[in-house]
Design a protein around this nucleic acid. Structure first.
Lengths: 97, 97
DNA sequence: TGGCTATTTGGCAGAATAGCCAAATAGATG
DNA sequence: CATCTATTTGGCTATTCTGCCAAATAGCCA
């Protein structure tokens, strides 16, 4: 294993929350601003912001400020694959679950 | 998405701990008994047992008792793919990280 | 500048998690 | 049966996570 175990675990941990997972799924289709992601998951806006910070910290997302909005995007296409694999009724590669 | 978001998040959450991730990696090579997994991650044996329970609860592992030992195995090859993807310096499918 | 929108930060209370110890359970074996 | 090995369960404390509120910050526009 080349990536430190702890770093990999941190990525999984960051994905281990329904709101964060939903946001990452949305971001798999392209970047979104915080307000869009917030509309997606509901709750307090500050909670959304903190969830995004967790994902950035784990290296899953990166954020960029443009005008007065902040746009987040996936940093690793790998994550998209991972989510697709779990989200499908069967694994796309193996045909099994 | 066909698998409930919450269930997928639970899988990620269960993988989001270094000891659990290490055990799952070992199990990707074949089933192990608790004592082997415990030797791998150290700490208290009861802690290992509880980590395994978390993974079973998430649907990642299944355990089977044979004689007086309990053997755990991966339930989903998908998880193996996921881990391989993250563990590699580059994603096996896309060549990117 | 003043106000407006978008987002983050600090702080707090409650819930969940981690890890250790002691005790209980299950099966093998003398 | 008594005992030994392997594992789980109950319980406890310390730590971390969640989600809300209030306040601060940053950039736009009149």
């Amino acid at each position: 294993m080349r990536v430190p175990l702890a770093a990999a675990a941190q990525v999984f941990k960051s994905l281990g929350h329904p709101a964060r997972l939903r946001m990452v799924q949305a971001l798999a289709k392209g970047e979104c601003c915080v307000c869009e992601l917030h509309a997606l998951v509901g709750g307090d806006l500050s909670t959304t912001s903190k969830h995004l910070a967790v994902l950035v910290q784990a290296g899953v997302l990166s954020g960029e400020k443009r005008a007065n909005k902040v746009f987040y995007r996936l940093r690793t296409p790998c994550v998209t694959d991972i989510i697709a694999c779990l989200a499908a009724p069967r694994c796309a590669r193996t045909g099994q679950r």
